[in-house]
């Protein structure tokens, strides 16, 4: 059976100033799969997510979402940024943050109503955070904050979910909750792409993997792609690069 493709990245090159961060990346992500993006620091994983979302402008290449369509609402592609990118002292509580997930659906000027509130509470419950709805976000633990941001993406009711290191620095309970959530999304037929750091947990959690280091080393089902030689190619080059840089500095 030929499955549909949710994200088609073609010939994508992204550079900050003129330093290339992503280099002629071609990547197809089938719909309804759980994909981990893996690669060393500075490999361009976050940039790839941001490029897919249209937050950074590529030098060349295109990104398409065949299952969503061109003129669909932007919020059908949900984004969970790396934690720590907001001012935690901001005067909002968990519920306020989750409600923001409804804003794209509401559009300009319209205010969130009872239905939106109910949806937000439901999403909070889905991540086990309903009893913290009225807590200011700085009074939550790191894992709880992460779950709130996941709930914000959930309430978007998107087709495609892009998450930047959701497992970073979270407690065991949150990790479990996130894994359950990812699987739930997959069962609902959603497409999920996660930037992931921990190589140990890739196998149990994801069904596809994309190995990235400036360009795509390989991508596909875990069974065929996630192996020693590919990992060595993904991480090895970067280590060489790091040592080369160190050598320069000592000169």
């Amino acid at each position: 059976m030929k499955s549909e493709t949710a994200i088609v990245v073609e010939d994508l090159t992204v550079a900050y100033d003129v330093k290339p961060v992503l280099w002629d990346v071609d990547l197809d992500i089938p719909a309804g799969t759980l994909t981990a993006i893996i690669g060393p620091n500075g490999a361009g994983k976050t940039t790839l997510l941001k490029a897919i979302l249209g937050l950074v402008k590529p030098i060349s290449g295109s990104i398409e979402f065949p299952t969503v369509g061109k003129n669909a609402r932007k919020d059908l592609i949900a984004y969970v940024p790396q934690s720590g990118s907001v001012d935690w002292d901001f005067p909002v509580n968990a519920l306020d943050v989750v409600m923001m997930g409804r804003y794209g659906y509401l559009g300009w000027f319209r205010r969130p109503g009872k239905a939106d509130r109910a949806a937000a509470m439901e999403a909070l419950a889905a991540v086990g955070m309903e009893s913290f709805a009225l807590r200011q976000i700085d009074q939550l633990s790191g894992g709880q904050q992460q779950r709130v941001f996941l709930a914000r993406a959930l309430v978007q009711n998107a087709e495609i979910y892009l998450m930047d290191e959701p497992f970073k620095g979270v407690d065991a309970r949150t990790e479990k909750a996130i894994v359950a959530l990812l699987k739930g999304l997959k069962n609902d037929g959603k497409t999920v792409v996660v930037v992931h750091h921990d190589l140990q947990t890739v196998r149990g959690t994801f069904d596809r993997v994309a190995l990235i280091n400036l360009h795509v080393i390989d991508s596909g089902p875990i069974q065929t792609v996630f192996n020693e030689s590919n990992l060595a190619r993904t991480y090895g080059g970067k280590e060489f690069l790091a040592s080369a840089h160190k050598g320069e500095r000592h000169d």
Binding site: P20, W23, N213, L214, H215, I217, R233, G237, K238, F240, L241, A244, H245
Partner: peptide, 16 residues
């Protein structure tokens, strides 16, 4: 020039 030793990743002969 751009990537240093990591360049071998980009060698088409390596299947990159």
């Amino acid at each position: 020039e751009l990537f240093g030793d990591a360049a071998e990743n980009f060698d088409p002969a390596n299947g990159g």
